[in-house]
Nucleic acid binder design. Sequence first.
DNA 1: CCTCCAATCTGACCAATGGTCAGATTACTG
DNA 2: CAGTAATCTGACCATTGGTCAGATTGGAGG
Lengths: 206, 206
Amino acid sequence: MSVTPKAAGRHHHGALRRALLDAVAEVVLEAGPEAVTLRECARRAGVSHSAATPHFGDKRGLLTAFATEGSERLRAAMQAAVAALPPTADAQTRLAATGRGYIAFARANPGHFRLLFRADLLDPDEPAFRAAKEAAFVPLAHAMAALAPGAPARAMRARLALAWSAVHGFCTLRAELPGAILWQSDALAEEVAEDLLALVAEACAG
Amino acid sequence: MSVTPKAAGRHHHGALRRALLDAVAEVVLEAGPEAVTLRECARRAGVSHSAATPHFGDKRGLLTAFATEGSERLRAAMQAAVAALPPTADAQTRLAATGRGYIAFARANPGHFRLLFRADLLDPDEPAFRAAKEAAFVPLAHAMAALAPGAPARAMRARLALAWSAVHGFCTLRAELPGAILWQSDALAEEVAEDLLALVAEACAG
DNA sequence: CCTCCAATCTGACCAATGGTCAGATTACTG
DNA sequence: CAGTAATCTGACCATTGGTCAGATTGGAGG
């Protein structure tokens, strides 16, 4: 377990914050965001459940802090996928790669991903979380702007909505409807994902 | 309130089932699926919270029954949107209309819609729910088959994934990220939705 | 009309949770 | 070394979902 319980009788100094976030990560990994319990996280950090209050306020604050880290990692995944491309790649390929990074993050971290869109568990107006969400939109906006530089605002909105919706919808459906026809096996899901990205990129270039 | 509390001392006969489902509908409407409480629903039906057990088993059973009704209504919304078309409408228009029905249902019943994809609150293997989910996929499959009758299986899978993902992703993002840039106002959201449907239908026809 | 039985419902109990608060403990500052 | 602010504890509370014995109800059969 990655969580460091504190030594008996000692304070965590500034480290309780990190220890609690790591505990959330563990629980989310093991049982999903719904299963996160203030008391269980505190237990794993070796601390009473009230100890979280000074650091995060309440459960929602803790989950929001964790979601903020997820948003940053999601952004990093998209950037990494684009960076993995040869420098000669064209705009359409870059847009597809951005989506590939999004899908890869959702696949590798299903619980963390699902939490990002659980408005009931989060505080959508917490400044750091807000900033992380806006930052996570940047790679898509960037790739799209490079694809269709002169498109009118309305067409641009529609394409952004299409690309984001299609990729996000794919991740959500795969995460929430396991066993659906379109992604029975992992291999099939990967194939469908690639074809989907190609269709989206083509439609946005179109 | 649409819920009929039972008369004091009398049994609900077979009507408790319906009364509880109506109570769920109320709570979901007022505060979303996460806020549903067995005890609150029982309170609204004028019954102790244990009274639900013989009818639904547990909370998950109650929510699954409610979600089953939602799935059926979602299917009806898609069919209605297609039926509202002039009989001369072509296959591409019919596919877009199917998506329009999906979006309309999600918009009109955000809580009910979100519940459908909350695997943690539902029993995905409950037979009636399974059947309703499969039935809800039919209108999309039907419209897609009419659009591209001879397409190879792989291309068909990709197009189904695109259409479903894009429409579902749009609904999900709008429901879970209120206040995002792409759907600030209702009018803007409607415009984006129509453009999105057109792009999807075109990509699936192409 | 009466009896009996199965379905239905109640009320109490339990463990668990999130939030709050007074106060103890710790770590740092001057 | 003294004092102060941050950190943490332990207890308490209301609420929840699940379980169970037993009361109540409605209808089936005599």
